[in-house]
Nucleic acid binder design. Structure first.
Length: 502
RNA sequence: GGCGGCGUAGCUCAGUUGGUCAGAGCAUCCGGCUCAUAAUCGGAAGGUCGUCGGUUCAAGUCCGACCGCCGCUACCA
């Protein structure tokens, strides 16, 4: 059985979970559900990043110990994933023992390889922020942009990862794996970063308390990257003393945002090369999901939490909008108008109405029992091409295009009904075939849209009289024309997506 | 400043290696239908493919310059 391993970034717990986190996590969820339909053995990982100075400070400000502080925040992420029906198989926290073991293992390997060395880190330091600043970040060349007070020149002994040694190796590797980073234009940005020259980066701090200590020098605490990135390995057992992690590793896709390309597509593969660990098979680099044009963040304080709009369009309506309206790789703009427009057009008018009109005709012309489709139906070709295109787009992590391909079958089905007008004909074999075609198309649509809308897909599945769990269907077999079970009870039920009056 | 990305119908976007590539969905207008959630179906209109040059028999599709928007610029995930 093919294995499929996907990760989201681990989210930093100094902020409450928001739309930006939800976006990436929903994409990952839909992607993994698709691969489950393909019969693959999937592992979907997300989690939280809980170390570092900011957490230490935030905890102190709250009068809490860091661990207690993160213990209070991390569940909020897990709770949101529950609310969004995210089927992650694992949730890793960087404060877990398995994570610490993996970080220690990776650090030690790179250290043993000679790629981590003691050196001096020097820079302008703001005592108030407890952070270093680059010259061009400073006001008037010497004042902290936050506190507006002069910074001090500090020198600190740090361990450095010799990233500069990996420039050629990285370029060579990417040249041999040209489709590793998708979409292509995002990958080009990463290649540009490498070609522009790589500088070593420090991986430890002596001033930091809240984190993982270097295995060979307890006076230093690992600083961000070796800690955060290693979660992807930790979750598959790296560092447990065996090679068991190789069953899952290398990861198929790291889903990341365009803002962390450098760390994930440059630092991370170099670290893995140094440690003698296989590189990821792929990175799927997304844009940001903006809200009315503004980047969603705690600092921008958007008035309305887009997540609250789940109440208006239902969870699956929300998921559909996020997936269908944003081209993965580009920025998306989350607007109420866009949400309602998508919901009404694609869900209420197309899918929901199709299900309703078919159910009504079945009741009137077929005694409420589904009929068999025409093996030679004109719709069969539409269904086949819709499946092919849907699959091709999920394969390259383009949910919006995949859903558009699936919806092409819905549109074709509405057209098929118009062309044959079964509601005008007397009950009989001809009507039965047309209705069977529509039911069969709905069956296939239910399967194909289930990664995006798990609950609605199941509802459609049951209303057309299919039994069991639509998620248990397996592709490509389930997309083949002609499998609808004649004689099944078709129920109309309430509107799947009540139309929203603007 | 340096590096990079984007700029195609009102809106969101497709257009892999240059030659039916000028497209889809939504919105708009006209018409049909009335099984259906004022849904659906058909048709129409709508773009000098950011601007200016260049290469070519032929360029959204290659090259150069420019304009506009945006990202990164290194230890913040």
């Amino acid at each position: 059985m093919n294995r499929f391993y996907v990760t989201t970034p681990i989210y930093y717990v100094n902020a409450e979970p928001h739309l930006g986190h939800a976006y990436t996590t929903i994409v990952g969820d839909a992607l993994t559900r698709w691969h489950r339909l393909l019969g693959e053995d999937v592992k979907y990982l997300t989690g939280t990043d809980e170390h570092g100075l900011k957490i230490q400070q935030a905890a102190a400000a709250a009068g809490m110990e860091p661990q207690a502080f993160t213990d209070a925040i991390a569940p909020k992420f897990a709770a949101l994933w529950g609310r969004l029906n995210i089927a992650n198989d694992d949730f890793i926290r960087t404060t877990e023992a398995r994570h610490k073991a993996a970080v220690v293992e990776l650090l030690q390997r790179c250290y043993d390889a000679g790629d981590i060395e003691l050196d001096t880190f020097a820079g302008k330091y703001c005592v108030a922020c407890e952070e270093y600043y680059a010259d061009d970040e400073l006001l008037d060349g010497d004042r902290c942009p936050i506190h507006q007070r002069p910074v001090e020149y500090f020198e600190e002994e740090n361990y450095f990862f010799r990233l500069s040694r990996f420039e050629d190796r990285l370029l060579d590797w990417y040249a041999r794996h040209p489709t590793a980073m998708i979409p292509e234009h995002r990958g080009n940005e990463a290649l540009g970063l490498i070609k522009s020259g790589l500088r070593d980066f420090s991986i430890s701090r002596t001033s930091l308390e809240w984190g993982i200590r270097l295995p060979w020098d307890a006076g230093h605490v690992a600083y961000v990257w070796f800690d955060a990135l290693t979660n992807y390995l930790a979750a598959v057992g790296f560092g447990d003393g065996t090679d068991g992690y190789r069953e899952r590793w290398p990861v198929d896709y790291h889903l990341i945002g365009k803002d962390i390309v450098r760390q994930h597509c440059v630092y991370w593969p170099a670290m893995l090369m140094s440690a003698g660990v296989d590189l990821p098979k792929g990175w799927a680099i997304g844009g940001w999901l903006l809200s009315d044009g503004d980047k969603i963040s705690k600092s921008s304080g958007n008035a309305v939490d887009p997540l609250d709009l789940i109440n208006d369009v239902g969870l699956d309506g929300f998921r559909y909008y996020v997936l269908a309206d944003t081209t993965y790789g580009n920025d998306g703009d989350f607007t109420y108008g866009g949400l309602v427009s998508r919901y009404n057009a694609d869900l209420a008018n197309n899918l929901g109405n199709l299900a309703a009109r078919v159910a009504t005709v079945v009741a009137k012309k077929c005694d409420g029992l589904g009929t068999a489709p025409d093996p030679d139906s004109a719709l069969a070709a539409h269904a086949a091409s819709a499946y092919t295109e849907t699959a091709a787009q999920w394969d390259v992590v383009q949910p919006s295009r995949a859903l558009d391909a699936t919806w092409s079958l819905i549109r074709a089905t509405n057209g098929h009904l118009e062309a044959n007008e079964p509601w005008k004909a007397e009950p009989g074999p001809a009507v039965d075939l047309v209705i069977g075609d529509a039911l069969e198309a709905l069956r296939i649509v239910a399967v194909l849209c289930s990664p995006a809308m798990p609950d609605i897909a199941q509802t459609v599945w049951e209303r057309i009289g299919m039994t069991g769990d639509v998620a248990d269907q397996r592709l490509p077999a389930a997309a083949e024309w002609g499998q609808y079970t004649a004689g099944a009870t078709v129920t109309k039920g309430d509107a799947l997506f009540p139309r929203i009056r603007a």
